[in-house]
């Protein structure tokens, strides 16, 4: 299983290098407040990485906040039960 994962990773890294090499020409981006010139491949990679990181961060924040809320609730319930007993 680990070998397959390594092979897939190597394939994607190689594909990235090939695509990057084939699209080395610069493209310009206008962000209204700034204009930047980036290689096409780097721009693609940046968009992918940024999107992945933002997605991961959103999911992690959602899960951890919900767990904390649940823990607080449970502690409150336990305190009430012991006080009742």
């Amino acid at each position: 299983m680990r070998l397959i994962v390594i092979l897939v990773l190597v394939f994607f890294v190689a594909a990235g290098i090939v695509v990057g090499a084939l699209n080395a020409d610069l493209v310009g981006y206008d962000f209204a407040f700034a204009r930047v010139q980036l290689p096409k491949g780097a721009a693609l990679l940046a968009a992918l990485v940024l999107g992945w990181l933002l997605g991961g961060l959103t999911a992690w924040l959602g899960v951890s906040l919900r767990q904390r809320r649940l823990q607080r609730q449970r502690r409150k319930d336990a305190g009430r039960k012991t006080a009742g007993a």
């Binding site: 981006y29 992918l48 940024l50 999107g51 933002l54 997605g55």
Partner: peptide, 24 residues
């Protein structure tokens, strides 16, 4: 000049994938 929002669909797909991986 290529508009920056041309990369948005790609970033959105990556966002969904990242979100799914993190939840898992």
């Amino acid at each position: 000049m290529m508009p920056w929002y041309a990369l948005l669909p790609l970033a959105a797909v990556a966002f969904v994938l990242g979100w799914w991986a993190s939840r898992r």
